[in-house]
Amino acid sequence: MNTIDNIKEVKAFIDFVANENCGKCTLCRIGVKRLSEILNNVINGNEDIEQKTALELGNTIKLGALCDFGKNAANVLLLIIDGIFQKKEFDNTVLTAINNFYSEFKERAVTGTIGKSVEFFIDANKCKKCSMCSRHCPAGAISGVIRLEPFQINQNKCIKCWTCFSVCKFGAVNVKK
């Protein structure tokens, strides 16, 4: 059974991801917006939306968005789609996923540090030259030589997505706010 609070929570999440992403890439800027419009319509009982469109769009964003904000947002939205169409309720899986998302991204999004106003640096002393960051950087902004030279971030290309910060296992990526 859905409680009113659950629905509120879900709707707040949908609005959050639609309004707080950085707006740089198409799949998240317009894709999450469209998905949020579809889901809000269904939740409000306004429209009978094709489930397939929502699922396809969600899966594409999950794989194809530029950074982890959009990818993870789509992941949670897929659980919400599942809650709406299959389970017919928003259970704890959904609520936990929403909270996990918030704990990773809410501060960054609200303070506007996704997409702008921060700089990332790799501490050459801490860098183990493993290339993890450069393989994950969606902007191709990190270069270095695996096992030989510490990795470096080209500030002109960096899109401030926090990916390197999350994937580095050695805490070598520093953030300057």
């Binding site: 740089k24 799949l27 902007a139 290309k157």
Partner: peptide, 10 residues
């Protein structure tokens, strides 16, 4: 530009 923001060349 080479940040890949349009997601057309995926």
């Amino acid at each position: 530009c080479a940040v890949g923001s349009c997601r057309v060349c995926l």
